[in-house]
Design a protein around this nucleic acid. Structure first.
Length: 113
DNA sequence: CGATTGACCGAAG
DNA sequence: CCTTCGGCCAATC
């Protein structure tokens, strides 16, 4: 039988795959991922996906920020592995919950892949 | 099952 | 520059 919502699960897998493909020291945005997986209008779901899987499995969600390069979801991270710390460990400058050279570090899956 | 919320985006005023 | 609104869809209450 054909389930009309072939999304949901497939969607999550794509998101996770893409996030795990983010190169070291690079970042991307929810919107970029959303577009890449074919859910440009459901960019919010990216956050859900990460919330459900990141923390549960090892997903570099710290490399995913909003379109402004702001660490929107830093509050959802475990305190031991705060987003800023992880980014800083990769040489990414974070100032006031925002990636300084976001424009340079931005990695668009649609372009790079 | 209806209403609310949310790690978002973009346009309009 | 800041606020408001619409959209989109899943999870939670």
């Amino acid at each position: 039988m054909k389930r009309k919502r072939k999304l949901d699960q497939d969607f999550y897998e794509k998101v996770l795959s893409t996030v795990q493909l983010i190169p070291y020291g690079r970042v991307t945005s929810y919107g970029a991922i959303a577009r890449y997986v074919g859910a440009a209008k459901s960019s919010r779901m990216i956050g859900y996906a990460l919330k459900n899987y990141a923390g549960m499995m090892e997903v570099p969600a710290h490399r995913v920020v909003n379109r402004l390069g702001i660490l929107s979801g830093r509050h959802h991270f475990p305190k031991e592995h705060s987003m800023e710390s992880r980014l800083a460990a990769e040489g990414i400058e974070v100032k006031d919950a925002m990636i300084v050279k976001f424009k340079e570090l931005f990695w668009d899956p649609a372009e790079e892949l």
